[in-house]
Design a binder for these strands. Structure first.
Lengths: 220, 220
DNA sequence: TAGATTGTTAATCGATTAACAATC
DNA sequence: TAGATTGTTAATCGATTAACAATC
C-alpha cells in the first residue's frame, strides 16, 4: 500500500498532460507485470516513454507518494493507485451512439473491456437498423435514450455519428444525463462546462503525420 | 494570395501543439466555407476552439503572414495555406495493416478521403483473409510489403494489428520504407528518429474521460 | 477618416528538468 | 554500511497572453 496522500485532488487542477501520461504509465506498468516484473524505477519508466525520470516522479506527486526510495515503484501497487486516480478501478457502462462502420468496430474493440469499460447500449437513428443486433447488443432508437441510460446508470457515451448530426446528438445525450463524450465526429462540440469531451479525429491524426513526413522528406 | 513568407520552416522547430491546432483551424475553416463564409477573424476562430485570438495569430506567425489587418483571414486562401503547410495539398496513398474489425472500419472511413488520404493497400497476416476483399481492395500478404509499397509510393501506414504484433510489424513497415505510422495498437512503439508516429489509444481516451467524469461527480 | 484587425514584442504564466537531502 | 532511488525545491525552459503600432 502507498503510505499516504498529500493532496486530495481538491482545488489545484491537475494539468491535462499529466493525466494523459498517467494512462501511458498504466499501460507500461501492465505490460511490465505481464512480463513478470515486480518493481520499476522512474528512470526505467521514463526511458520507455521518452521522458525524464524527474517528470515521472513529479507527475505522481500530484496524487500522493507511491514509490520506495532505493527500490522504485511496485508495479502491481502502482497500477492499483493509477486506476483509483483515473476512476477505472471499477467497470464503467458505456453507450455507443451511431452504429455505422466505425461504431460497430468500436463495439467489438477488446481494448475497452481490458481497461474496465463495457459497452452496454447501442443507439442509431436509422430506422432500418433498429432492433438488429451487433454482437449481442440490440440497436435501440434514440427516443429511448433517456430511460435506457438512466436504467443502466450510463454516464459515458461514444459518439460515432456523421459530423452533421454530431452536435444535435450530443445535445440529446447531455440532456439525457451523459457527462462524458468520446467524440469521433470531426467537429468541435459545444457543451456545458460540467460535460467532458475526449476527441479523436482520425483525419487529423493523418494530417499530423503528413506534416512530419513532409518535413522529413525535405531533409533528404 | 498571402503576401509573403518569413520563415521557410528551417531550423526553428514548430511545437507539436501548434501543428495540431493547424488541423483544428483547417477543420473550422472548411466548415465556415461550407456555411458560405468568406472571411474570419482570429477572435472568431479562437472563440469556436476555446483559445485566444492572440494564440491563433501567433500560431500562423510560424509559417508566414496570411491575414489582412482590418479584415481578418480569407477562408479559402487560408485553407490553401494550411494544406500546403500540412502537406495535404495533394493526395497521399496510405497502407492499412491489420484488417480486423477496426482496420476494416478504418478502410471505409470517409473522413480520410475528404482530407486527401486514400487507402490503396491492405495487408493482413491471417492466411484465411489473404485475397479476400474489403470494399474493392484485395487483402495482401505481409510478404509483399516492400514491393507493394514502393510500386505505389506509399510512405504512410495505418497500423491496426494486435498489441502483441505491433512492434514487429512496425519494424517491417519501416524496413519497407514507411516513414509515418498511425498506430492504433496500445503499445509504445520504438522507432528510428526519422520515422514519425501518431498514436490513437481508444482505451486511453475513455480513461481520460473517466478521470474527468469522476472529478465532476465529486463536485455534486 | 474611423473602425477593425493584423503581426509582433514583451510580460506572464505554466510545465519540465536538474539537483540533492531524505530514506530504504 | 554503500548503493539506489525517491520526493521536492529551485532553476530553466517554453508556451500563452496582453498590449499596441502598423495597416487595410
Amino acid at each position: 500500500m502507498a503510505r499516504e496522500k498529500n493532496k486530495p485532488n481538491e482545488e489545484t487542477k491537475v494539468p491535462k498532460a499529466v493525466v494523459n501520461r498517467l494512462s501511458l504509465y498504466l499501460r507500461e506498468l501492465q505490460r511490465s507485470v505481464r512480463n513478470g516484473r515486480e518493481t520499476i524505477s522512474s528512470s526505467q519508466l521514463g526511458n520507455i516513454l521518452g521522458i525524464t525520470d524527474a517528470q515521472v516522479r513529479k507527475d505522481f506527486t500530484w496524487f500522493g507518494q507511491f514509490g520506495y526510495p532505493g527500490i522504485g515503484y511496485r508495479c502491481q501497487e502502482l497500477i492499483g493507485e493509477i486506476r483509483k486516480i483515473l476512476g477505472t478501478n471499477r467497470i464503467w457502462p458505456v453507450a455507443l451512439v451511431g452504429c455505422g462502420n466505425l461504431g460497430s468496430a468500436l463495439l467489438g474493440y477488446r481494448g475497452f473491456g481490458e481497461q474496465g469499460f463495457s459497452v452496454v447500449l447501442a443507439f442509431d437513428s436509422n430506422p432500418e437498423l433498429i432492433g438488429k443486433r451487433i454482437g449481442d447488443l440490440p440497436i435501440r432508437e434514440l427516443s429511448n435514450l433517456k430511460s435506457d441510460l438512466s436504467s443502466r446508470d450510463v454516464l459515458m457515451a461514444i459518439l460515432a455519428v456523421p459530423a452533421t448530426a454530431a452536435q444535435e446528438v450530443a445535445d440529446r445525450l447531455i440532456e439525457a444525463g451523459i457527462t462524458g463524450i468520446l467524440n469521433f465526429a470531426p467537429v468541435t462540440l459545444s457543451v456545458p462546462e460540467r460535460v467532458s469531451i475526449a476527441e479523436v479525429d482520425l483525419a487529423i491524426e493523418l494530417e499530423q503525420l503528413s506534416f512530419a513526413v513532409v518535413k522529413q522528406l525535405g531533409k533528404s
